[in-house]
Amino acid sequence: MTLGQAQINLHEVVQEVTRLFLDYESALMRNDADALNAYFWRHPAVTRYGINDRQLGHEALVAYRAAVPAPDFTRTLHDVRITAFGPDMAVAMCEFKRSDTDLHGFQTQTWVRLPEGWRIVSAHVSMVPFQPGLSP
């Protein structure tokens, strides 16, 4: 089955995942580990690659969140992009700036609508020196 153009960026899906993405950001800044864990798929195949860490499986994710202290910085999101692929899958991407570093942050989350609701099945966060406008 192919995904037709009419199925790309369905308005209601983009709106729903955008709200969830922003709610996730709020939970992240509050260090609400229970809320953050609940956004992720409770499955051994869930994957999160962080700045200096990785979690393979939901149990590893829960253990990581339990050990992470509350952030002592703020984040400003830029260029938030939500791309929906049909009614049940979306990719959320953004760039961010943290108050404690000159590095430039990038974040990607793959969201899937499961029987229990929308869940992140894969996530990646990185921070690098970056100069806007320069491309390889």
Results as ranks from 00 to 15, higher is better:
91 V>S: 04
17 V>R: 02
131 Q>I: 14
7 Q>E: 14
50 G>V: 03
5 Q>E: 08
79 D>M: 03
37 N>Y: 04
14 V>I: 11
58 H>K: 04
26 S>T: 15
52 N>C: 04
30 R>S: 00
115 P>H: 04
38 A>P: 02
67 A>L: 13
17 V>A: 09
80 V>N: 03
38 A>H: 12
129 P>L: 01
14 V>H: 00
10 L>A: 05
135 S>H: 14
41 W>M: 06
99 S>L: 05
27 A>N: 03
30 R>Q: 13
66 A>V: 01
77 L>D: 01
24 Y>M: 12
22 L>M: 04
83 T>D: 15
67 A>N: 14
89 M>S: 15
120 I>A: 04
82 I>P: 01
44 P>F: 05
6 A>C: 02
65 R>H: 13
12 E>L: 03
13 V>M: 09
72 D>K: 14
79 D>V: 02
17 V>D: 02
25 E>C: 08
35 A>E: 12
99 S>A: 07
77 L>Y: 06
37 N>C: 14
24 Y>I: 02
110 T>K: 06
135 S>F: 15
78 H>N: 13
105 G>L: 11
68 V>L: 14
110 T>W: 09
110 T>I: 15
107 Q>W: 07
33 A>N: 07
51 I>A: 11
78 H>P: 00
42 R>A: 13
129 P>M: 03
18 T>L: 12
45 A>C: 08
78 H>S: 07
108 T>P: 01
81 R>Q: 11
46 V>C: 04
72 D>S: 12
93 M>P: 00
116 E>Y: 00
64 Y>V: 00
50 G>P: 07
119 R>F: 08
86 G>S: 08
88 D>K: 11
63 A>Q: 14
63 A>N: 15
131 Q>H: 09
21 F>E: 15
126 S>E: 07
44 P>G: 04
61 L>E: 06
108 T>H: 01
64 Y>S: 06
114 L>W: 01
95 E>W: 05
127 M>F: 00
109 Q>K: 10
78 H>G: 04
